[in-house]
Design a protein around this nucleic acid. Structure first.
Lengths: 321, 321
DNA sequence: TCAAAAGTGTTATCCTTACACCCATGT
DNA sequence: ACATGGGTGTAAGGATAACACTTTTGA
């Protein structure tokens, strides 16, 4: 180990960029802010003026987009060799997840909100498993499985694909967004896998038909997958959904928002009980008549729960008293 | 937003360091590898030769320490202004958590394993809440609460302290390691909070008696807190404990390892059922006689579960079929 | 009247937690 | 005998998932 932990020791020039996964849910669709013909996530330089990475990102996004950023969380830091730019400088990308409510005009550059299932069509199971898994993904997966070196490796690949994509009696697990993307990448079913100085490609690996879904620049689709996965996991034990909701909302609107993020249908009666039982919301006294049908009570998020409780998942048989 | 996401855009020199939280559990104590008179975590420069950050860290640790690194996970990236070094260069620290089995000689530099509760004595609740919380922490917390500007702020501080430290009928939550450290830091009960160009200190904020626990250089104690928190959360839904165990072990040894990490006692009969029911282990057929008492069956981790299942926490009322 | 959405009641099942108890070995 | 650790049985309580049903509005 290097015994001088305080010394700055990089011999080469390094640049740091911030990359943002900005999420909103509008009319039942999960959306992400994109630039560059919707092929890139917004990013910017890390500036020394900022007190910290997080506050830097927050200030920068709020200045550029006028979006009130309710919640910000660091996702992951990437520094793969491919990211070296033309000048040979090494680029480190520090990615963040940010939640916001709806999209005002913004209009800067060519920023656009886009449904995230345009990039990951296999992730939307709100109306059951999408047929494109069977039709468009499965043949490519089969080819990848068959291309393994021996029987044992083939079994491993088949099992992994089945577990991740909910095949052969495996239940669908919506949290495994990143693992699914990485499998498709590894199987060369993602156009991004053929770019750059990919060794496997140079060695003459088979080119299989691309999976559906819009590609993005560099590894931005991987970063987006990381953000979706993090958010899908987080909504289960932390009340972050409310950062995406207007001040008042009906329980069905809340449910639709959760469904948009999770990519799955939720059981209405049980969802309502779960929310009310946890005392996450309080009635405003008003009702809404927006959808056809009986008027729905409007609710408001009880912000105090953030102070009252630290929600976390117990799973160990802790010895009481 | 900057519309040029690929451009390297940092105007100033930036250096990147890797910082490692290397954990082992030996004879019932959770240990972390330290250097510099046990006041720093091992760290090293990020080198361009490495294919990725993760593989770079793995190679570097395995070369330097000869430790087999079973599991590696990125923790967090820090870039606070205080981290600028003497030359004005900005340092970004990318921290990693690594799990290993026991400590061979190693002997490089002055690396030493040290129990992590030496740095966070208030985190060890294996024998119930440690008295030092009442004796050493509570007075300082009270002073911090009283120093708030108004009644409402005082109530907020009291509630936060009570929730985090398990006071006033709040149950202890072992996962909130980082939040507790940050509260103590904010309350200036941590020596590290008085170093560097701390504005609050320069403005003449009250200096309160330091909390017990060995300090570390820079923000290494915060990084360690991040690692402990991540590990305590992770053992509940992912079988990472086994990375810290020898090849064969008794269920009590496994339990002691979990208790060391979680800092809490675990209920023995239920723990055994939990482990066996999840089919995480299989009998070797051998028994162990190490502890006094009836010989215990030896078990081995079933590595195949990693492929079979993706363990994750469901908490949404998902609509079936 | 029907469709659409808002809600309520109830039950079967599983998981968590706790308590009580017996087993096998060394001193 | 007894201390120490290994190991089993079982029951209460709560959370989850599923099913069936009533209510209130607009078209």
């Amino acid at each position: 180990m290097d015994p001088r932990p305080t010394t700055s020791s990089a011999e080469h020039d390094i640049a740091a960029d911030l990359v943002a996964v900005l999420v909103a849910v509008t009319s039942g669709d999960p959306r992400v802010l994109t630039i560059q013909d919707q092929r890139a996530l917004p990013s910017g330089p890390f500036e020394l003026a900022h007190r910290s990475l997080q506050s830097g990102l927050r200030a920068w996004v709020e200045r550029q987009t006028r979006l009130p950023l309710g919640y910000v969380e660091q996702l992951y830091t990437f520094a793969d060799r491919d990211r070296a730019d033309a000048t040979g400088k090494h680029v480190i990308s520090i990615s963040y997840l940010g939640l916001t409510r709806e999209q005002p005009a913004l209009g800067e550059h060519e920023a656009r909100w886009r449904c995230w299932y345009d990039y990951f069509p296999w992730e939307d199971h709100r109306a059951g498993p999408p047929p494109l898994i069977e039709q468009a993904l499965r043949p490519g997966l089969r080819a990848w499985i068959a291309a393994a070196s021996d029987r044992a490796a083939q079994r491993g690949r088949r099992q992994r694909a089945a577990m991740l994509f909910g095949l052969e009696d495996h239940a669908w697990n919506e949290e495994l967004v990143l693992q699914r993307y990485e499998l498709l990448y590894e199987a060369k079913l993602i156009p991004e896998a053929h770019r750059g100085n990919s060794q496997a490609f140079e060695l003459g690996d088979t080119v299989r038909p691309a999976a559906p879904g819009k590609p993005m620049m560099l590894d931005h689709r991987r970063i987006l997958a990381t953000g979706i996965a993090r958010l899908r996991a987080k909504i289960k034990y932390h009340p972050v959904v409310f950062e995406l909701m207007p001040d008042t909302f009906t329980l069905l609107q809340l449910q639709r928002c959760v469904e948009a993020l999770a990519g799955r249908q939720v059981h209405k009666p049980n969802f309502r009980r779960l929310i009310e039982q946890q005392e996450l919301v309080e009635e405003t006294g008003e009702t809404s008549q927006e959808a056809g049908g009986r008027p729905a009570k409007l609710f408001r998020f009880r912000r105090t729960v953030l102070a009252e409780r630290a929600i976390s998942g117990t799973k160990l048989p802790i010895s009481g008293a």
